[in-house]
């Protein structure tokens, strides 16, 4: 019986400790002017956030989303470097990170420190070192696949270290199987079709667009749990903020560029159905 009481007491103690670590108002960041109620969900700084790509081929989108989150977390402080730990295999599969591309998303490339690690164990070790360095603006951990070493214990350790150093950390990987991880939030990201551009550039690609699903939000917002939801977001690199992706005014069909404009009216016919589909993805309220 004593054991049971002890365990109950311990649990209470843990709950108290956890509550103390709940983010205050100053140490959260939002996605920008997006999501429900304009402000969107709030994410804690100095915590570990997980971003999964919905599919292996969606990893570039997830990478962009992580970078955008890291920029949001950094806030106005543009001097602190962002450290990116990348496994070699990701480099081979997705290509190397490129400075002009980073600049296109709004990150000054000279702020990025790239660490290439040969395997998942080294990724974790380097991340464990980096997360303790309060001089970093953000930390991105990108192992390849579903490494066994990145389990509940490892992510919990990273979370605790992030909390004590204040380094906002992101774990980026493709969702192969649901593995338990101790993270503050978990996102699943897929690319979204471009929003509508100006009429004269009907075929132009818009800003980077994502369909982001919030799978888990630990601790909720101010103690109030936040339900998961799905948002269509667009990244505005100039404002360094997410905004809602406007529903498409027209169907997304494979349209070759340079097709005579006469078919545009025909395309508009499908718009309703497409718009309905997107709206259905949005979270009510």
């Amino acid at each position: 019986m004593d054991t049971v009481r002890d365990i109950a007491a311990l649990r209470q103690m843990l709950a108290r400790l956890e509550a103390e670590r709940l983010p205050g108002a100053a140490s959260v960041f939002s996605l920008g002017a997006a999501g429900p109620e304009g402000g969107g969900v709030r994410l804690a700084r100095g915590a570990l956030h997980e971003v999964q790509a919905a599919h292996g081929a969606d990893l570039p989108a997830a990478t962009g989303f992580v970078l955008a989150l890291a920029l949001r977390a950094g806030g106005a402080d543009v001097r602190r470097p962002i450290l990116w730990v990348r496994q070699d295999f990701a480099e081979a599969e997705l290509g190397r990170l490129d400075a002009p591309g980073l600049a296109s998303l709004g990150l000054d490339p000279s702020r990025l420190i790239l660490v290439r690690a040969p395997d998942a164990a080294e990724v974790l070790r380097a991340a464990g070192d980096a997360v303790r360095c309060p001089g970093l603006g953000a930390l991105v951990i990108e192992p390849w696949g579903e490494p066994k070493t990145l389990d509940l214990t490892a992510t919990r350790r990273l979370s605790l270290r992030a909390a004590s150093s204040g380094v906002t950390s992101f774990l980026l990987h493709a969702a192969a199987r649901p593995a338990p991880t101790a993270v503050a939030t978990r996102w699943r990201v897929a690319p979204a079709a471009s929003g509508p551009g100006a009429p004269e550039e009907a075929d132009a690609l818009g800003s980077p667009a994502f369909t982001a699903t919030l799978l888990r939000h630990r601790g909720g917002e101010g103690g109030r749990p936040v339900e998961g939801g799905t948002w269509n977001l667009e990244w505005d690199h100039e404002a360094c903020s997410f905004r809602d992706l406007a529903p498409l005014p027209r169907a997304v069909v494979p349209v070759p560029a340079g097709r005579p404009a006469g078919t545009a009216a025909a395309r508009q016919g499908n718009a309703g159905a497409e718009r309905g589909e997107i709206v259905a993805l949005r979270r009510a309220g």
């Binding site: 570039p60 997705l94 290509g95 190397r96 002009p100 591309g101 296109s104 490339p109 690609l205």
Partner: peptide
Amino acid sequence: LPPMPEMLPRPLTLFD
């Protein structure tokens, strides 16, 4: 480093 010149959007990752 000096700031990058303005150019069209570039990809985040590049194959080499």
